[in-house]
Design a binder for these strands. Structure first.
Lengths: 204, 204
DNA sequence: TCTAGCATGTAAATCGTTACATGATTAA
DNA sequence: TTAATCATGTAACGATTTACATGCTAGA
């Protein structure tokens, strides 16, 4: 329900072709709403036939040829409507947390290396965001649009900060856990033991 | 690719029927991997025909009748395999951040109220997590399984803490932004203005 | 018996991912 | 002219969501 609106936002910021949009979704907008080029082309087709955007008249509609789009008033109205409407926050879905929960039952073999790898990835992302912040949002007065964009960037920075800290804690925990490569490999098959604090307990 | 493994984890913690799983996914496991009952029933069918789980022999296989499942050795092996395998972190997708970014272009009308509502929801969730923490993870030594589960719960607590803080910042920002109900309503339709710092800028 | 709630499902539509296909442009 | 790259798509499949259908059980 959000991809068309992500595309409308990107096109309002600058009219673009499908591939240009794809590239911009790898940066910028894509930092909080990712999309592949197939999704983007499909959605551009829908938005065009729905009357929300149109191809710039300068470009020919041939197959291998560049085709840029701009937002029509109906598209802007739809985006404004969608932005104003109340929406439920989507529940969290995180594979790493699920894996950790599973590893409490079937053993922690292999997961520590991936925790380290994820830590490095999140540190990289954090550094990239901080670079953008220094370059595009110097301290001092700024226009309301820029304050809003900075707010969004700060969410990214704070989220990556959270992950790097939490993954750090997790790795510390593993150091105190004994040899992780061997744990729980012995207790095999058979019905689950009813560990105390099992279902009332730990979640994220 | 993760729902079957979430179900295997839940069933290892305690054999359950479809509806019981659904309820447990509303708490516990569902805090970081949500699922509806339709997803769960379909996946239970697949896992059963794949030989990963089996219905407990005590229950009859009639339609409106309760049917509990337990994990077979193949299911435990598959879960251990999946847990150990390296996986890419999934890129962030957050509607509220997208809406804020859009509101920098089409105006902030309506969004402030929803920011407040989300703040209240995240505060509630945080309180719930902290209650679980106090009840199930008192300070002191604990078994490795419980330390892992606590780690996952701490991720939930820290994430909700992040959201409440960030939403607080966002609302402060709106107070300094002037009257949010009117902003940008005047600048209508027409091609987008090329604001400086547009595409190099804000993301998260 | 009727109703409400428990429990297990089916069906259809949309979204997301992966793999592949096709045409245009440019440089060796 | 060939190959590489840019650019726009198609096809197929699996995951997710929403709405609905069916059968059991217990209490009024």
């Amino acid at each position: 329900m959000s991809l068309p609106h992500a595309i409308l936002t990107a096109l309002l910021e600058r009219p673009s072709s499908g591939l240009e949009l794809t590239r911009r979704f790898d940066k910028s907008i894509g930092y909080f709403w990712s999309a592949t080029h197939q999704q983007i082309y499909r959605e551009l087709g829908r938005l065009e036939s729905g009357g929300y955007i149109r191809a710039l008249p300068t470009a020919q509609p041939a197959r291998g040829q560049k085709k840029s789009y701009e937002v029509l008033p109906a598209g802007r109205d739809e985006l404004a409507r969608w932005t104003a409407v109340s929406q439920e926050p989507k529940p969290l879905r995180d594979t790493m947390l699920l894996r950790l929960r599973a590893s409490a039952v079937v053993g922690t073999a292999g997961i520590e290396a991936d925790l380290r790898r994820h830590l490095a990835l999140h540190q990289e992302q954090l550094a990239e965001y901080e670079e953008i912040q220094e370059r595009d949002f110097p301290p001092g007065r700024s226009a309301p649009e820029d304050r809003l964009r900075h707010l969004v960037l700060r969410a990214g920075i704070d989220l990556e900060t959270f992950w790097t800290q939490w993954l750090g804690h997790a790795l510390e925990e593993f150091e105190h856990l004994g040899d992780p490569r061997a744990r729980r490999e012995e207790s095999d098959s058979g019905p689950a033991s009813d560990a105390p604090g099992e279902d009332r307990s730990a979640s994220g």
